[in-house]
Amino acid sequence: MSRRLPESLKKIPHTYCPGCGHGIIHRLVAESLDELELREKTVAIAPVGCAVFGYHYWNFDTAEAAHGRPPAAATGIKRVLPDRIVITYQGDGDLAAIGGNEIIHAANRGENISVFFVNNACYGMTGGQMAPTTMFDQVTTTTPLGRTLEDGYPVKVCELLSVLEGVSYIERVAVNSPANIMKAKKAVKKALGYQARNRGFTLVEFLSMCPTGWKVSPEKSLEWIDERMLRIFPLGVYKDKG
């Protein structure tokens, strides 16, 4: 990461919680768009969730879709403007719960969009309730005694989508260390590069810190990803058709 603010970010401070991963991920997307010179061609869809205010920070065209529907809205944009770069930025509730159908079908159609999927294992915006990606025994405000089998298994989005023929590239990364952040940026650039070359559907899943939702300190939240999330959500490339 350079010290200079990317052009793809507006010069205003974030209002995300201390230790939240969104600031890092916003910057990775912004730097990648700058470096690939795609900012002026980009139309983004923000989700319902913590990143609903993405357009406050992003200096590229952005709209906010209904909860879970960013892949459908992005499809509408891409079909009428196939030479633009269309991205969605979605949380785990938006993408894996309410928007499960839209993401599966957009991926299956090989829709030429890039999805940036932020998995922080809880619903941050609404106060830390259970997400589809909440892990067993994880305490949330709707699993006060920890998630159990009754709530179902944590949804593994990369694994689930990678079997679909229309998908060209899927990788799971984390943003809890400088080394992981560097890898995450490579994944973002790869996804955008694939889209620019009309390779089809791309998705990057970010394991991201939510100290507020997890009720741990920002420092502890970095370890929390290593200790708790990586076992369930292993990092790596799940599909790469080149």
Binding site: A65, R69, A72, A73, A74, T75, K78, R79, E102, H105
Partner: peptide, 11 residues
Amino acid sequence: ASINMVFGAAL
């Protein structure tokens, strides 16, 4: 999905 695709194209 239909109505949200319409939303996207309308944007």
